[in-house]
Design a protein around this nucleic acid. Sequence first.
DNA 1: CGACCTTTTGAACGTATTCAACCGATGTGG
DNA 2: CCACATCGGTTGAATACGTTCAAAAGGTCG
Lengths: 251, 251
Amino acid sequence: MSVITMHAAQRNTESAAKKFEVTCSGCNLREICLPKGLDATEMKRVEQVVYARRRIHRGEALFHAGDAFSAVYAIRSGFFKTTVLNDDGREQVTGFMMSGELVGMDGIGTGCYNGNAVALEDCEVCVLPFALVEEISREIPALQRHLHCVLSREIVRDHGVMMLLGSMRAEERLAAFLLNLSKRFTRRGYSPSDFHLRMTREEIGSYLGLKLETVSRLFSKFQEEGFIEVNQKHILILDNAGLERLLGVKH
Amino acid sequence: MSVITMHAAQRNTESAAKKFEVTCSGCNLREICLPKGLDATEMKRVEQVVYARRRIHRGEALFHAGDAFSAVYAIRSGFFKTTVLNDDGREQVTGFMMSGELVGMDGIGTGCYNGNAVALEDCEVCVLPFALVEEISREIPALQRHLHCVLSREIVRDHGVMMLLGSMRAEERLAAFLLNLSKRFTRRGYSPSDFHLRMTREEIGSYLGLKLETVSRLFSKFQEEGFIEVNQKHILILDNAGLERLLGVKH
DNA sequence: CGACCTTTTGAACGTATTCAACCGATGTGG
DNA sequence: CCACATCGGTTGAATACGTTCAAAAGGTCG
């Protein structure tokens, strides 16, 4: 492995860089988005996976359920909701995804996306044609490993949501939701305790298996109890430990 | 990573085959479990992934949450429940898995299994060391593809459960549950309308986000309405279309 | 500025839960 | 092999949690 020569990597990437401005190595999300310990050659190769960038305006869909699957998307900036639809038209929010996270993996198995991904604010994504991802991950074990980790972590995340929906009370669900957002914002260098929700009460409710009125009431209740301060979509967490206690306490 | 001696894998598989009776090519689950269109050489190589078989008695765990991850398991026979645990000890059933399906994929990302897999009857599984799965799927694109499909389909399944838990009424959840079991039994050559539940009401309830009493009441209700006949764990579906109608109708 | 969407809050309601009793099936030890 | 203990399942009655319906206020955007 260490004997691989560098000549392929020696070619100037200037043209590619101009076209798509693709430099994973320079992306501040690389620690979230990419495997650790890639050498320069591998990094170059991995950057070839990023076929293009795409901008999605707030309210627009990155893809719809049923669209032909060809790529997964790494979120560079912005905030998405992912949803699935019932036969009878009901919509369920399955997740809120932010920068550095991957969306579209639900399409690998069937060749069609299983759900929608809708931008909750103006977004930019990296387009990763999946055939290319597979090809390059056959060459670079670290990338293969990373892909499998990402897929597996999505499964683990989903199981967490099942726990939330199946066993938790409304209060606990909202506390878990806030703490989860807080943690993910922290990871990205934002304040853990002061943030802006990009989704409506209805979308939060759908995600948490609650009605929008219930979500609203709970926000008010949390405020009364001094856990948070709410101003429309602006959230201030005043008592993190208090929220965590809410989660730990048996019904 | 540098000098892996897996060329020991070139050893004649005869001894391994004797030891473990491993012949995926002869397994009646291969259409559920394996990719299509493997040639004989590839099939031989894929069979090397099956490191061993393991028998699990009813009530025993195939793995526990927190156990070090090293393999995924293909269920050869029997029935498992998979669960996750809360900080405060609550348990949530995340799935019921049957022959031909894979369990343990929740461990890939973290190196530890995220949940438990417990046998609901005596089971036999094929042990697939994941490092080997990754190695061989780098060589055989069809296997790589298949692995990704399986992971993706698990995500899609989980999203379906989220829809069920987040947006459906108790009645709809149980109807969906029965129809799902029916479909999977059919695929395996069993009766779509006459089967034996291997899980308790409590486990069904946990999976569906309901209490065991609610599940029991609903079974009785479905029986009164002529959709099914229930005798303890024995289920007879009398009106499949009726159950489907329950799902399609907005509350 | 006005129309529309989102959020908040109240009151009545309904679904699923809780608590409790009982029954039947299963399995174990005397 | 039976008696008994245990576990799983059913059913009823009271309760609680979250929903539904409704009205009004606060934001946002053309």
